[in-house]
């Protein structure tokens, strides 16, 4: 029953983001682009060019051990060496969107056998994974290189036309 529900949720997720995340497992085409917009508030969603990144990195560079390719971190291989492809490979299937909510912290603490006690949240996972690699490979690293800031974001940063010192002062 629980399995069925999980499959259903997973299916809904795949449909929602318009990609076949399980495609690799089924030998189907990998997604051309993935729209990363579940956290968008001050920036518009990011259309991630999956096809482009397939050419510059292995699956395991981002997906750890979940695509069937061996993990690149020997420390992970201690447990995940024999791990097969997993049904779910999306970042948010493991990395929580709200890693510091009272509920999440409580559940984490109650799970005394949990090994990954210092697991990144979704936003941290995206940025550390993307930005870390971009820095190492000399790819763009500015916020606005990937993100289109929206009006709420301009207000927050007091930037652009909303700068307190006027548009000329901001860069």
């Amino acid at each position: 029953m629980a399995d069925l529900k999980r499959t259903k949720i997973a299916l809904m997720f795949f449909l929602a983001v318009g990609v076949g995340s399980g495609a690799a497992a089924l030998g189907m085409d990998l997604p051309e682009t993935v729209l990363l917009n579940s956290l968008s508030r001050y920036y518009d969603g990011v259309s991630f060019d999956h096809a482009l990144h397939e050419q510059v990195a292995d699956c395991a560079s981002c997906h750890h051990h979940t695509t069937g390719m061996p993990s690149q971190d020997p420390d992970c291989m201690r447990c995940h060496a024999g791990a097969a492809e997993m049904g779910v490979v999306a970042c948010r299937d493991c990395h929580a969107a709200e890693p510091f909510s009272a509920g999440y912290l409580k559940a984490k603490k109650a799970d005394t056998h949990r090994y990954h006690t210092d697991q990144l949240g979704l936003k941290g996972a995206y940025h550390q994974s993307c930005l870390g690699c971009h820095q190492a490979m000399g790819a763009p690293i500015g916020c606005l290189d990937c993100h289109q800031r929206n009006q709420a974001g301009d207000e927050l940063f007091r930037a652009g036309a909303l700068s307190s010192a006027g548009p000329a002062a901001s860069r």
């Binding site: 916020c143 927050l156 940063f157 307190s164 002062a169």
Partner: peptide, 25 residues
């Protein structure tokens, strides 16, 4: 990475006056 988003968020949350320079400057 020095993006200063924390400074911007603090300014909004605590309803502080507008900064001399934009937070992305």
């Amino acid at each position: 990475i020095g993006c200063r988003s924390c400074e911007a968020a603090c300014n909004k949350e605590q309803q502080l006056p507008a900064p001399e320079m934009a937070f992305d400057d």
